[in-house]
Design a protein around this nucleic acid. Structure first.
Length: 572
DNA sequence: TTAGGGTTAG
């Protein structure tokens, strides 16, 4: 007895592309029967001929014609043809037809079961593919190595473990494809040790299995291990480079990412769309606008398509580098902008204080019927914060909850606390934090403390710090902020107390860092470090700037700097 | 006369 039910006409294609305007007729019995269709020229077509027709078909119309012809020729249960047709439906995004065909097949063989499992896994429907897998077992059909490699794709860690023992039991535990799938499953589940163990059991490693392991390391920030593997790899293709470059970009090492990108170009390997996404992210992190522009023109001159993802990356890069005009130019040229593209541009305006432009884009986006996301509201609330628009902030905060049913996250509360704090409404900000149903994070507390410092509210500052210390939530930043609060109130005893408290509890301040790009080279400065080769010239120049400033009547605001625990000589 | 594994933006 089959567990799957025979479904009526399929109705939900996987993608909206190629969707026919009218309801599809299924199973097809007369499509193309009387017309001069590809499949109706002969009544005696051999299965081989049908197989080749299916392989050549690219549209749903052609596939339906062939399917109809198969029914007429009594070949609709032919295992090979059913398999091919199923795969073709799925490959053009019609998983619905694929499933319907599967349901109409009397005794699906291991090929068809594996194909339906594979199709669902391909579309990210891994739970569904696991259901098919269990149904397959219930039907008494034995899975093979192909089945395992398909069902492992995207499965959960728990399911991956179960499938692992199942694969061993059935003798597929050392198949290269199955093992690679297991490395990937353990890696996605975050169990790097198990992934590595699987990897090590492989007698032979393919480029794919090496890349899977490399991805595991890179995704989990194990960049040294990743680099070691990367350097050992012979015959690296561009995907390996992409994984490594992206690993650096995603884990705060944008300089290494750019440096590896240069090596890729030097090795005459052609970057892809994936490559430029990571590289643009690195440029954005560094504020390296010259490198960013170079990548932009590289994209334009080397046939890399500026699709919505690449376009958004460019927008983000230009925004973070402070070049809003360039960002807007790219933004306006992106076709089929999705919400992420809108969010990036709105965020760009927000962080640079152009709240009006941010609001305008928000309105345009709403007017064209695009639903804002939680990120959109972070951008909008940040824009309110930069312009001190308290009532606008509350309006958007409530709009988000009431109209768009978006639950505020800690970041939204952070924006509100920042907004209220800047406006001096500390009590309101503190009450908001205390009323939160979710746990406030250290950044949020920091924002509130920073506002106490800004408005010299020592009492509330102390209260918050006491709360944080007693709940074991205090970080070095907490102490620094409290010290600053005392300093700005002229309370030197307080400053001394915080210093000794920090010393006693062994808290160390993370050194501040800053970057600047000069002539395509990014220079990094760490507070207190004098390692830059041109430090003498830099100091001389700083002194010269200071003299000029003083000569023009500028007195620096040393109130904070003097009483900070470490003097960040470059960050000003 | 059938098949499987690796990299995307806030």
């Amino acid at each position: 007895m089959r567990l799957t039910t025979l479904s009526a006409a399929p109705s939900s294609p996987v993608t909206t592309r190629n969707r026919p305007s009218q309801s599809p007729q299924f199973p097809p019995s007369s499509v193309g029967a009387r017309s001069k269709s590809v499949a109706s020229t002969s009544h005696f077509l051999q299965p081989e001929r049908f197989a080749s027709l299916i392989d050549k078909s690219k549209s749903i119309k052609q596939l339906l014609q062939i399917h109809a012809a198969l029914v007429r020729h009594g070949l609709d249960q032919h295992p090979v043809l059913t398999f091919k047709l199923q795969r073709s439906y799925s490959s053009i995004g019609r998983l619905d037809y694929s499933v319907a065909l599967f349901n109409l097949t009397d005794n699906p063989d291991v090929y068809l079961w594996t194909a339906i499992i594979h199709s669902h896994a391909q579309y990210g429907l891994s739970e569904k593919s696991l259901i098919y897998y269990t149904q397959m077992l219930t039907q008494g059909v034995q899975p093979n190595a192909f089945t395992f490699s398909s069902v492992l794709k995207g499965c959960s860690l728990e399911d991956g473990r179960a499938l692992h023992s199942h694969a061993i039991k059935l003798g597929f535990g050392s198949d290269m494809y199955v093992t690679t799938g297991l490395v990937d499953a353990y890696a996605r589940g975050g169990v790097i040790i198990s992934a590595k163990q699987m990897f090590d059991t492989m007698p032979e490693k393919s480029l794919i299995s090496l890349t899977t392991m490399l991805t595991c390391y890179a995704k989990h920030g194990k960049l040294q291990e990743a680099r070691l593997l990367f350097d050992e790899m012979q015959d690296k293709d561009v995907i390996c480079w992409n994984v490594m470059i992206d690993g650096y970009a995603q884990h705060g090492l944008p300089n290494q990412s750019l440096s590896l990108f240069r090596q890729l170009l030097a090795a005459k390997i052609k970057p892809t769309e994936f490559t430029v996404l990571s590289v643009l992210s690195s440029c954005a992190q560094l504020g390296a606008v010259d490198s960013g522009r170079w990548v932009h023109s590289y994209i334009e001159n080397n046939g890399i398509q500026i699709n919505v993802q690449v376009g958004t990356s460019l927008v983000d890069m230009y925004c973070k580098c402070g070049s809003l005009e360039d960002a807007r130019k790219v933004f306006d040229q992106i076709n089929d902008k999705d919400v992420v593209a809108w969010n990036s541009m709105i965020m760009g305006y927000a962080i640079h204080g152009f709240s009006e432009e941010a609001f305008q884009l928000f309105n345009t986006m709403s007017n064209i019927g695009l639903q804002p996301t939680d990120i959109t509201f972070i951008a909008i609330l940040a824009a309110c914060g930069h312009s001190g628009l308290v009532s606008e902030g509350w309006r958007f905060f409530n709009l988000m909850i009431d109209r768009y049913n978006i639950e505020p996250k800690v970041e939204h509360f952070g924006c509100m606390v920042n907004l209220l704090g800047r406006a001096g409404r500390l009590k309101e900000a503190y009450d908001l934090v205390r009323s939160m149903k979710i746990e406030p994070d250290p950044v949020l507390w920091g924002t509130l403390l920073w506002a106490c410092r800004l408005h010299n509210n020592v009492i509330l500052g102390e209260e918050i710090v006491q709360f944080l210390v007693s709940h074991n939530l205090a970080s070095s930043g907490t102490y620094i902020l409290l010290s600053n609060i005392y300093a700005s109130a002229g309370n030197w005893d307080g400053v001394a107390r915080v210093r000794s408290l920090m010393k006693d509890s062994g808290v160390e301040k993370e050194p501040g860092r800053s970057f600047i790009e000069v002539n395509n080279k990014v220079h990094e400065f760490v507070a207190g470090s004098l390692r830059h080769p041109k430090r003498k010239e830099i100091y001389l120049m700083l002194e010269e700037i200071n003299s000029l400033l003083r000569a023009n009547g500028y007195t620096s605001q040393t109130q904070m700097v003097l009483h900070d625990l470490e003097y960040d000589w470059i960050g000003f």
